[in-house]
Amino acid sequence: MANILALGGAHIDRRGRISGETAPGASNPGSWKQEAGGGSFNAARALARLGHSVTLFSPRGGDSEGEAVARAAEAAGVIDRPLVFLDRQTPTYTAILERDGNLVIALADMELYSLMSPRRLTMHDIREAIAAADLILTDANLPQETLLALCDTASAAEKPVAAIGISPAKIVRFKPSLAKLGFLFMNEAEARALTGAAPSDPTEWPAIFRTVGLSAGAITRGRDAVVAWNENSVGTLLPPPLAAIGDVTGAGDGFAAGFLHATLEGSDLAGALAHGAASARLALISEMATAENLSRALLAETLALVPNAEIVL
């Protein structure tokens, strides 16, 4: 079991799902659901369900949505330490999904995260949590200057930082921090936004990122092969097909959680890729952003459905 400190998105996800063929510019019949979500929070809950001790710090409003996030953290076994702003609203993410679960469009109301300034990292409780952590997990919901300060603080304390890209618009906040990150999880659209590159061969991504300072990362590509690399190796893994998708929301966060869990348990790159793919699969078949039934036993069972990773370098 590892001690993990998570700082970043923990908010309310609202998702509408169209029940028929999508008709742009028109009213579409469908259904609506709401739950707690956020990149760091989704991964934090998955890691807690896999038996790790996870402490979460995130800005929260003094409202019913903030209370809902707190209840979700407690249910997953996450140690919740919110930074509450009583006069503000908890951030929200509102998405519209097609009938097959794929995203049509989303709107992120995340202004509260701008109040997570670098000086918040000097709070006694956060400094203590950094000192006790085996791993620090963050995401691009936080301001650029805060992410850089977090990486500097973690580096001084000799603590690795893993990060989640969140979106093409937000991942660019990591540009000043790339050389200081231990690992960055992203999808291909986010990778393009961060580098301006679009290689025809996805195995070229590691070399591109190494030139801008990122020594280790993973790029998920939907149904196509995920690419991951570290200082010594490059690996790919083609996710097995799914008969049906419950919801794509949180799949990348699930991949990050499975990958980090395996890494913390001593797995090599190939093993971490397989665990990431298995965890993402469980998130995809779930109607929720995270697999609420996730456990070490279920993850091990799901690994049998995942092909071996190919180490290409």
Rank of each mutant, 00 (worst) to 15 (best):
K170R: 08
I126L: 14
T153R: 09
D63R: 13
S117H: 15
K159C: 02
I164L: 13
I105N: 06
S117D: 15
E98G: 14
L83S: 06
L97P: 00
P176K: 06
S58H: 10
T90H: 10
V69Y: 01
L147N: 09
E145V: 11
T55S: 15
Q89L: 04
R71N: 08
D63K: 13
K175I: 08
P160H: 11
T146M: 07
A156N: 11
G51H: 13
P168L: 04
C151Y: 12
A75Y: 06
T138M: 09
G66S: 06
L121Y: 11
I136L: 15
R120P: 01
S64H: 13
V104G: 04
A46D: 14
A95V: 06
G62E: 13
R49I: 07
A72M: 07
R120D: 08
A157M: 12
D109R: 02
A68D: 05
T153A: 10
D109F: 01
P143W: 03
T90Y: 10
G165I: 03
A132G: 11
A75E: 14
T90Q: 08
I130N: 01
G66C: 06
I130H: 02
A149G: 06
A73I: 05
L50K: 03
G77P: 01
L83C: 07
S114P: 15
T138G: 05
S64F: 13
A162F: 12
H52V: 01
A157K: 12
L137T: 01
L150S: 02
D134C: 05
N141T: 08
G62R: 12
L47M: 09
D87T: 11
L97F: 04
T94I: 14
E128T: 10
C151E: 12
N141W: 04
T92W: 00
V104W: 05
I105A: 10
I171W: 00
D139I: 00
L142V: 10
P168N: 05
K159H: 03
R45H: 09
R127G: 11
I136D: 03
V54Q: 02
P91K: 00
D80I: 03
A169V: 06
R81A: 00
V78R: 04
A108L: 10
S58E: 09
T122I: 07
G66A: 05
L112K: 00
I79G: 05
P91Q: 03
L121I: 08
C151L: 14
H124R: 12
L150H: 03
D134R: 04
K159Q: 02
D80M: 12
A75Q: 13
L150Y: 06
D63E: 09
R60H: 12
I130D: 01
A149P: 04
A76W: 03
A163F: 07
L142Q: 10
S117L: 15
T153L: 14
A70F: 03
L121R: 11
C151V: 09
D134M: 03
G62P: 13
I105T: 11
V161P: 06
A157V: 10
N102W: 11
I171F: 01
L115G: 06
A162P: 15
S155V: 12
P59F: 03
D152F: 05
V69R: 00
F174K: 02
L142H: 09
E65W: 05
Q89P: 00
T146W: 03
S58A: 15
R49A: 11
T94K: 12
I164K: 02
R173H: 13
G66Q: 05
V104M: 07
E145K: 15
D139T: 02
H52W: 00
R119E: 14
G61C: 01
A163W: 01
H124Q: 12
